[in-house]
């Protein structure tokens, strides 16, 4: 069996000022081991919601369906357990942690995950060496490590910091929620390289994006179109090109 990430009929809602609002309305998605899939969809279709539900955000109540990862029921696990299992979410809007030193945050995170995975923890020296290599690879200034997590980071710097975390935590499933938004052209290439170099038989990714351009750098195995809380169409990389040219209209009409 090549079931890696397997989502069936997933429904989720959020409490919107007292009234439940359904956002995911029976979503099906399979990502086999080693594959990179992309999701594209109009604003508000539920892409970020899907990523939050997969990462374990409690405000989103799952009301139906299943989601399993590596054969485990993902929905039963705490967010930190999912992280240990290899799920990583690069946030669409990375969160600021005032006063929390970035290097310290990264090292604690890396070691929390390594501990949970039964791996040896990194000491300060080993970690710093690794972190320096990775920041250099992402063309980030080493100064970013000394600052408070995401505080005062530019939009692009925040996104790079997400990719830095991904690389350090070495996930087996990376969910990238619009990581390309706000990146300049060079940064886009650098970030794509950061993802591509992780590609391999044990690494899968779900790349959420609005831009076909990213998918020229990170060439996906499959592209899914999402609308109104469902996957309404799936195909190869050509779907992205088609969307770029014609927009969502045809897919939306076909789905009705």
């Amino acid at each position: 069996m090549n079931d890696f990430l397997k989502i069936e009929g997933l429904k989720a809602q959020i409490d919107a000022d007292g009234t439940p609002k359904e956002i995911l309305k029976g979503l099906d998605l399979n990502i086999p081991k080693g594959e990179v899939h992309a999701i594209m969809g109009p604003n508000g279709s539920g892409k970020s919601t899907l990523s939050y539900v997969l990462a374990g955000r409690e405000e989103y109540e799952v009301t139906g369906g299943t989601a399993s990862f590596k054969g485990q029921d993902l929905l039963e696990l705490e967010p930190e357990e999912r992280a240990a299992l290899g799920v990583f979410l690069a946030f669409q809007s990375p969160v600021e942690l005032p006063g929390v030193n970035n290097a310290n945050f990264l090292r604690t995170a890396v070691n929390a995950v390594r501990r949970a995975r039964g791996e040896e923890e990194l000491d300060a020296v080993a970690f710093l060496k690794l972190a320096r290599e990775e920041t250099a690879r992402l063309s980030m200034s080493g100064e970013m490590l000394k600052r408070a997590v995401n505080v005062g980071f530019s939009g692009g710097e925040k996104k790079r910091n997400e990719v830095l975390q991904m690389r350090l935590l070495q996930p087996s499933l990376a969910i990238l929620d619009e990581t390309d938004s706000g990146l300049d052209i060079d940064a886009l290439r650098i970030v794509a390289e950061g993802v591509n170099s992780l590609r391999g038989p044990d690494f899968s990714a779900l790349v959420i994006t609005h831009h076909q351009r990213l998918l020229e750098y990170i060439v996906p195995d499959r592209v899914h179109v999402m609308a109104h809380g469902r996957i309404i169409h799936s195909g190869g990389p050509e779907v992205a090109t088609q969307l770029e040219k014609q927009g969502y209209k045809q897919f939306l009409e076909a789905a009705q």
């Binding site: 409690e58 967010p79 992280a83 990375p94 942690l97 995950v113």
Partner: peptide, 11 residues
């Protein structure tokens, strides 16, 4: 903030 940290492996 809590969710961000937890998604990075913190309890």
């Amino acid at each position: 903030q809590l969710f961000y940290c937890r998604s990075r492996g913190f309890s």
